[in-house]
Each structure stands twice: as C-alpha cells, then as structure tokens.
Design a protein around this nucleic acid. Structure first.
Length: 993
RNA sequence: GCCCGGAUGGCGGAAUGGCAGACGCGGCGGACUCAAAAUCCGCUGCCCGAAAGGGUGUGAGGGUUCAAAUCCCUCUCCGGGCACCA
C-alpha cells in the first residue's frame, strides 16, 4: 500500500472540523495567545502597565472566579462551568472595548495536602505544586483568557508574606465605635489617656499592654472553642455542622476553653448587614448573610440578685413588654456570676404564692443530696462535656438546676428563682435570660419540666385559644404551648407604667421608656454573629507574624521581618490525642525545635522570644487574593494604590471620567448603583456565608485603614449552578462505573445486571466522573465550552449528558463547513451581500446576542447563533459560498463562546490579527426594522386567525385590517362585539357575547 | 420547626401579563448511497381527525384580567439555608 493511498481507510475530508482538527487548532491558539500576550490586561502604571495607552480612554472590567482549591483528583466537567461563564463574559466585554482583568489563582493551603503528607511523608508543598500544575494544564486546555502574569497561590511565600502583613494591620487596629470605623492602635493611647475611668497614668507598663491588647481587632482569648480531636484542631463556628460535627470529615466536636486568636468581626456586624443593600447580589445570598449576622432589637434589663448588693443579672430580651410575666431566670452554664451568687445551702423558697419550698427536682439530675455549689458544678461539667450531637439526640428535653439564688423582677419587686440551664448560650446576648414561659416556647417547656409558674401578660385571641382546644379564660399553665403572637397586655401595671391594653409594639415602647427613665435597662441590639476564631493547630497554613515575650504577651513582628516562613519539618501529624474532650492540642510547628525559640532585637536589645505555633485558617488566603491579582509582583505593598483604585472603582465614577462608550445592549444606568469593587464575581452558593463574610470583613478593615478605596470587595455576585450526574448502584448498593451503564426500555443495566439510578453530584466515590480531558479528546475544548453554556442559564444546576454534546459539536462542524472547504481547508466566501431576509436575521441576531451576553444568557445566545448558522447553511447551499458580511459577524459572535475555532476561521478568512479585542459586531438599526408583522387575532382570548399589518400600524388600523379579513368577518358575523383589545404589533382580541 | 428557591414535551431548556414549547438531544419519515455511516431536508406536547380543523395543555385547586407558565391565595412534591440565638 502506497503512502498516497493512506487516507482511504476512512474517507473523512481532510479539513473536516472533528476532534482531531479541533485539538490541533486549540493547541495552536493557546500557544499563540500566550506568545502574543493576548490576555495581558495592562495596569495604569507600574510593572504590568505595558500597553495601557490603548485603554486609557476605555472602561475597565474586573471579572473574578472564586478561588479554587487545587485538588489532587483534578477537575471534572462540573468544575469549569463558572470559569467558562466568566471567560465568555470577559471575552465578550473585551471585544466591546473594555480593559478586562481576568485571572486565576489557587487557594492551596489546606487539609488534603497535609493529610496526604501525613500518610506518605511527602511534603505538602510537593503535592500542592504538582496539583496546581495539573490544574493549570487542564484550565489552559479550556482556552480561558486569563492574564497568566497574575496567577498566584496562597502558598507562595511572596503571597503569604502579605497575608501576614494584613494580619498585622488587623492586630494593630482597634474599632472606634464613635467614628464607626477601625483606626490604628497608636491612636487609641491618647483616647485611653484622656479617659479618667481608665486611670492610664496609674497603670504599669504591663497593665497598659494588656489593656491595649484587649482593644485590638485581633486578640487572644481563652474562649469556649470547637475542639475537634480527630482533626487535631479547633474549628470556627462556621465549620461545625448543626449536629455538632466537623464540616470536613464529620468528626465529633467538643466545646472547651482554649487560648486562641480571635478576629473582632462582630465590631463590623452592623456595617456588614447594612452595606448588603448596595450590593448587586441575589436576595437569597443576602438573606443568608443577614440570618447569619442575626441582628435582633430588644432591651437589656437589670435584675438585682437578692442578698447580693453588687450582683446584678443583666438579661437581653426582645420582648421587654412581657417583663411582668417573668417567673424565673436562667444563666448559661459558663456564666461568671454563678461563682458569685450560688449559696451553700438550699433556701426555703418563697416564690410569690405559687411555691413555698424548693422542689427536689430543682436540685439537679445528679442527686438531691448535695448543696447548690456541687449541684451547679456537676451540671456545668455535664453541659460542657455534652457534644452538640448529644444535645440533639436528647430531643432537646430541657435540663437545668436551680442555683439557690433569687433575683428581683424590677417591674414589680417579685422574687424570681435563678436557674442554670444549657438552653441558654453564653455566646449570645448577655448569657442570661428572664424567662417568660407564657410567651416563649423554650421557657414554656422548661417551666413545665420544673413546675414553674406560667403567667399570661399578653392576652391571646379567642381564636388562638379555641384552635388549641382551650376555652377563653383558661390559665396559661394549661395552654398546650406558649403564645408568642401579638395581643394586648394584661396584668402588667405598676406604680410607674402600665402596659395593659397596649399591643406588643406599643408596649415595648412604653416599657423601654420606663426602664430607661428608671435606670433599669436600655434598648439594645444584639447579633448572632460571633468573633472569628482564627487559630488552627496545623502545619500547612500561614504562620502568624507574632512572637511572645517573657511576659507571655504577644508582640507583632515588624514589617521588615516578614515573611515568617514555614519551617521545614518531617512529621506533619497533629499530636493525637484521644478522641475526647480531655485531649490537648499540640500544633505540629512545636516540633520545629530550632524555629520555636528565636532571638530578635525588637527595639530593646536582643531578647529571646517564643513563636506563635498555630497557623491561620484556610480562609485567610482567600480573603484578599482578588487584590493581589491587581498587582501580583509588588514587593513593597500588597497592592499599589493606583492599580487598586483603577480596577476596583465603580463603573460610573471611573477615575478619569472619560466618556464610557457604553455599547448598545447594556442599558444606561444599569450600573448606576455601582459602589465599587469587583465588577462580576462568580462562584458557588456554598460560600454564601463563610468566605463572603470573612472577605467583606477584611476588606472593610483595609478600607478603614486607608489601604483600599472601596468599602465592599464584590459589587456584583453571581452564583453559578452545578453540573450533576446520574450514579448507579448494583444489587449490593455499591456504585458501579456510570459510563458502562446502558439504558434499555427505560431501565438501566450493567451488562445483564439491572442497576438503580440516582441523581447526585459528580464525584470520584460515586463513580460518575467525566473529566474535561476526555471531552477534549472526544470533541475538543470549544465543544465542551459550548455544551456547558448551552444547557441552561448559568445559575441553574443541570444534569450532565454526554449524549447531548453532539448537538453543539454539529453546530461548530456546520459553521466550519459553511465557511471552509473541507477538501482544501480554504475559506469559501463571496463579497456579494446576503439576501435581505438573511441580513435582517443577521442584525436581529447581533442585537439579541449582545443583549444575552451582557446578561450572562449564554444559552439563548447560542440558540440564536445556531438559528443564524442554519440560515447560512441554506444560503451557502444556494450560492456555493458564504456571504462575507454574515460570515464575519457570525465568527465574531461565536468567538467568546468557542474562541479557538473562531480565531482559526478568522485567520483563514484573511485576518492577520486576533479578534480578541474590540471587534464585536454592532446591529444596524435599519436592518432591525421590519415592514410588516403578523399579529394573532383572538376570540375571547383564543387565537383564531392571523393578519398581517404594517409594523407601525396603530390600534384603529390594526382593528380595521382584522375586521376586513374574510375569515374574521365571518367569525364576527351576527355576534355582538362587546369589546376590542388591540395591542399594536402584538395582537387583536375580540370579546364577543 | 422556621426562612428562601423551584416544578413547562420522552430529556436539557425558551417565553416574566399578549401566538406556550425557541434552540439542542432523542424519536419518526425522506433525499443521497449497492449498503451503512456522515451530511442535507421535513415532521415531532397530548387527544379526535385522511386532511382542513377542533379540543386540550406549563405540579394540584381556586382567584384577578379582554388575556395568566408569568400576578394573588391555598395545597402537594423537590432542592437549599438556619435550627434552644432569648
């Protein structure tokens, strides 16, 4: 067989657009884009400013993807959905003249690399770098138009040096509540000196330092923490699931006191809440953040403790209007006042008229033969050792112990017993409540458990009572549940105030006024949000730039001593440690013996200091990466002010105020409320709370301290959906390889064996993973991109269906064949313009695609492009060549979606330069106009006929044309037309009797 | 339990008060071919009908409107968030 005969094995034309050719084209253009620096986005000044002159008069756009973790498993086809979406959008905007910054980095610290290191002894850096390299390869093959100069990893020393620097900014700041912003800690000293209550001049140097440390936004606190022995670390509240287990690994989590770094995010609660209003985020995400911050308005009220002159129990309540119904109080088990108020012996109690002795079951569940101090001690121990899961399992039966102490209800002087119970949490409000069992379900349950009086002070409606099967006038103690709705106050009068007859809101106003006047309480706002626990007992994280001196107080390292590099060690395992609450954390860094102690001169001569042995949580690096993209090579600042201001500016107040040649398709004013920040941030909804709240907090601190120019980091947030997939289990319930399963008659089989189908996320353990690499091989990256964008709107989750990909592949093939001779590989165009109908379709398509792309409506944009291409197929069939005008516009419009094949076609059509910049077609209004339209004619809302009218016909003309139509005239003959509704160019509706 | 979001052909979806089902997959038919693949063309919600045409139809029920997938109320199911937060 001769060489010349070689291609006969299959007679595929040599230049057909198939997977082989696609792969060739894609590699070629990926190399070219890199060589030609196509996606370098110039800064206005500095080392990355080459080529800025071309953009000086243009607008900028900062498009951002959520920071990925470089997993060892590599990408599956679900991962890049958002990355493709942002790339299409970024390419579209670039083609309309924007200076678009789009970059990708890696959130590379974290547990998987460290756990792999523990198993294999492989240093986490080695694993991490290999994973990043693999992910870079996979993403490059997708043809994403990222600026490669701006790619960073959180594990780069040059990056985490600045993470440490930002930590020091937070450490060296305090929150000025009057100014409502953070200020440098140096500015605190004069305030303390001026405050007579502080007595600054009498304090020792050490006392002063401790006092100042207590104001810092990063502070050490011996607090109750979520200790997870299995992971060997503590976790933030946000990392613990509702059933008391670690979000990562599902291990039990215990609460125990431990000295840890905390970040004072609570100081920002109000601003984090209020500033949501100006953001272009979905309502559901805003709501999740609002719920997490959990603002509630109420009052703090002081209850004096009987027999203790100085002791006052301050409670927080959202229902001060029910004060007269408070029949007992509860302190959280960790409440410090317990050490003060608990008597040695059980009192002979008098509580109003209802009770005259201390019932045995008030004395605790560990025996009634002990006095209050021991009963309380045992209960506190019981509460501390119980994991959240155990609390859950107990069905939330209320437990608690009487403290033996009584407080006095300030509104009526009534003695109320004080309990300790774990349904009151130390971390919320004041850690103490007044219990109003008639009007709070939890208090109601507790009161029933402990036979406490239940006193109605807000009258429920008769309807409410009868719905619960109790008659009007039934005492509250016999209700099936607490009444928490609105009603009028009863039994709520003292010498100074009466709430009787007032509805809840009015009653709150009245009682708040009285409390304030009497000095007994103040209206208060409380938040669920807690300070952010910022220490982790891990190796693979950012070391703190903190050392401890001889007083064991923290000392910040000066900027010049950054970075504090991770020491090399060989054993990465956290010290384990029994899987229980008693085990003590031992950070791996403690094993770096030569690193732990360090001799430094921090201003008062060389001294020995001990290093902080914890590392920062993984969230730290992702709190500010978007800022580093702006100026990744800067060695003197985390970002230069000029780059930061340029890229983060709001669209409307761009620095130079130059005329923004806003392209059509984007309504003027749509970005009017743009307060600045990343122009488009795309990522999964799973980061709705943690990452987005933490990053907003850091950004606000940096804003307050003058390091960034916007108060919010992410102006517009878009949550992409997920790609899900079917998974199959065999008779034993084991997952089988999804790609081997076949469908027959609506059932599913692996060979002859029937299997069950589930619809799940894509994942290795479910054996239903499809990788982009497979798709590149079968169809090419352009087809994969187009497929993922075509299957639905970007925010919708959708099933993966390999079978369906062929549709968009055929579209590209047809497009190619319309423009290129499959035999010669040469473009086949004619300069003769297309027929009018085709040109009208072309311009309608341009207008539509522009609008769709601007709205991230890529699925409908693709549908319009397919329609146009199908039309072009006819034209080419008629003429033997594609009209130049249609071909040119079509290729340019396809370019953001399928950039490689578009560039290749563009080149074969005779263009020497890339189409990536400033070339998106603009619709000619002359071709958008149509002369006539067909409008439906309805009879009582049902379409019966259609008539053709001039597109600018008014209502009367349209109706006249309709009536003149013989079929319609017949329809109306002999009937009474009661009403005619005409919407010009839309429809005619005859309402007949 | 509370709060949010969703439900449209066999499948992914389109239409946000004005012709339901764009576009794609799948299916059916035709052209080309010795044949098959590929390609091109046509049809394709359901029911009745040879067709013309008619009826019906957007999770269920009710309402507003000349007109409802779209707005309102009630319910069912699915997905997500929170969960002793005073």
């Amino acid at each position: 067989m001769s060489d010349a005969a070689a291609p006969t094995a299959d007679d595929t034309p040599r230049h057909r657009y198939d997977a082989r050719l696609a792969t060739e084209i894609e590699a070629k253009w990926q190399d070219r884009w890199e060589e030609r620096r196509t996606f370098w986005a110039p800064n206005p000044s500095g080392p990355l400013s080459e080529g800025f002159a071309a953009f000086a008069e243009r607008d900028k756009l900062f498009v951002l993807d959520m920071f990925p973790y470089p997993s060892g498993a590599g990408l599956h086809v679900g991962h890049p959905l958002g990355y493709i979406g942002t790339d299409v959008y970024a390419r579209f905007k670039r083609m309309t003249g924007y200076n678009v910054l789009h970059a990708m980095g890696y959130d590379a610290f974290g547990l998987p690399a460290e756990q792999y290191a523990v198993q294999t002894g492989q240093h986490p850096r080695v694993t991490t770098e290999a994973n990043i390299a693999n992910m870079r390869r996979q993403l490059r093959a997708l043809g994403l138009g990222h600026d490669p100069r701006r790619s960073i990893a959180t594990t780069d020393v040059a990056y985490y040096r600045w993470t440490q620097w930002i930590f020091l900014q937070i450490f060296n700041a305090f929150y000025d509540a009057d100014a409502d912003r953070a200020r440098p800690i140096d500015e605190l000293i004069p305030l303390l000196e001026a405050d007579p209550e502080v007595g600054w001049s009498e304090l020792t140097e050490l006392e002063r330092r401790e006092l100042v440390d207590g104001y810092r936004l990063a502070y050490l606190d011996e607090a109750q923490v979520n200790w997870c022995p299995a992971l060997g670390t503590v976790l933030a509240n946000e990392e613990v699931t509702a059933d008391g287990r670690s979000e990562r690994g599902n291990h039990p989590v215990y609460r125990r006191p431990l000295k840890q770094w905390m970040l004072r995010i609570t100081a920002y609660a109000e601003r984090l809440l209020a500033d949501l209003d100006a953001l272009d985020w979905s309502d559901s995400i805003k709501l999740m953040q609002r719920n997490w911050i959990g603002r509630s308005e109420g009052a703090e009220v002081d209850f004096p403790v009987a027999g203790h002159e100085d002791a006052v129990i301050t409670v927080f309540t959202t229902r001060p209007d029910t004060l007269f119904g408070a029949t007992y109080m509860v302190l959280a088990p960790e409440h410090p006042l317990l050490d003060v108020i608990v008597p040695n012996e059980w009192p002979d109690a008098m509580i109003g008229e209802e009770l005259n002795d201390v019932p045995a079951d008030w004395r605790g569940i560990f025996g009634t033969d002990v006095g209050p101090p021991e009963a309380i001690r045992r209960y506190r121990e019981f509460a501390a050792q119980k994991s959240e899961l155990e609390r859950q399992a107990e069905g939330r039966v209320k437990t608690g112990v009487f403290t033996g102490a009584f407080a006095t209800n300030p509104v009526n002087g009534a003695p109320v017993p004080v309990f300790v119970a774990d349904y009151v949490l130390m971390g919320y409000g004041t850690g103490a409540i007044m219990a109003v069992p008639a009007h709070d379900q939890r208090d109601f349950e507790f009161a029933q458990e402990f036979s406490l009086p239940i006193r109605c002070v807000v009258q429920p409606s008769d309807t409410w009572l009868s719905e619960r099967g109790v008659g009007a006038g039934t005492p509250a103690g016999e209700w099936p549940e607490a009444f928490t709705g609105d009603g009028v106050g009863v039994h709520s009068t003292n010498d100074g105030v009466s709430l009787d007859g007032l509805h809840v809101e009015a009653a709150k106003q009245a009682i708040n006024g009285w409390l304030e006047a009497e000095g007994l309480g103040l209206p208060t706002v409380t938040y669920k949000l807690r300070d952010w626990l910022f220490s982790r007992q891990r190796y693979w994280g950012e070391p703190f730039p903190i050392v401890y001196d001889e007083h064991d107080l923290p000392v910040a390292l000066p900027d010049a001593m950054l970075p504090v590099e991770l020491p090399e060690i060989t054993d990465f395992e956290p010290e384990i440690v029994a899987d229980d609450v008693e085990s003590v954390p031992a950070p791996p860094l403690a094993r770096a013996e030569r690193w732990v102690m360090v001799e430094l001169d921090l201003g008062d001569g060389p001294k020995t200091y001990g290093r902080e042995l914890n590392t920062m949580p993984q969230w730290a690096g992702s709190c500010w990466y978007y800022l580093r993209y702006l100026d990744p090579t800067n060695e003197t600042a985390f970002v230069s002010p000029s780059a930061e201001r340029y890229w983060m500016a709001g669209a409307r107040d761009a620095a130079d105020g130059a005329a923004n040649d806003r392209p059509p398709g984007i309504p003027a004013g749509s970005e009017r409320d743009h307060v600045g920040g990343v122009d488009l941030y795309v990522g999964g909804v799973e980061h709705a709370v943690l990452h987005l709240l933490y990053a907003r907090f850091w950004h606000k601190v940096l804003f307050d301290l003058g390091h960034v120019s916007t108060s919010e980091p992410f102006q517009r947030l878009f949550n992409q959906g997920y790609i899900q997939a079917h998974a199959y289990t065999d008779a034993r319930g084991a997952y089988v390889e999804a790609s081997d399963v076949v469908e027959r008659d609506g059932r599913y089989f692996l060979g002859d064996q029937p299997v069950d189908r589930e619809y799940r996320k894509m994942g290795k353990s479910l054996r239903n993973v499809v990788t982009p690499d497979e798709m590149y091989r079968e169809y090419g990256a352009d087809t994969l991109r187009l497929y993922e964008m075509s299957t639905g709107p970007l925010d919708a989750s959708r099933p993966w269906s390999t079978r369906d990909i062929v549709g968009v592949h055929r579209f590209l093939q047809r497009l190619w064949r319309n423009l290129v001779d499959e035999g010669t590989g040469l473009a086949r165009l004619t300069t003769e313009p297309a027929d009018d109908e085709t040109r009208r379709l072309l311009h309608r398509t341009i207008a539509g695609v522009r609008g769709d792309m601007a709205d991230l409506g890529f699925n409908t944009a693709i549908a319009k492009l397919i329609t146009l291409n199908n039309r072009l197929t006819q034209v080419v069939a008629d003429r033997g060549a594609a009209p130049d005008d249609v071909a040119t516009a079509l290729v340019l419009m396809v370019a953001p979606l399928a950039p490689h094949v578009a560039e290749e076609l563009w080149e074969r059509m005779g263009h020497a330069t890339s189409l990536a910049h400033d070339a998106f077609p603009v619709a000619d209004p002359a071709w958008l106009a149509v002369e006539t339209v067909e409008v439906p004619v309805q009879e009582n809302g049902k379409v019966r006929h259609r008539v053709t009218v001039p597109s600018d016909a008014d209502a009367d003309t349209t109706e006249a044309v309709a009536r003149a139509d013989p079929a319609i005239a017949a329809m109306l003959a002999g009937r009474t037309v009661r009403k005619v509704v005409v919407v010009p160019a839309r429809l005619v509706n005859f309402v007949v009797g």
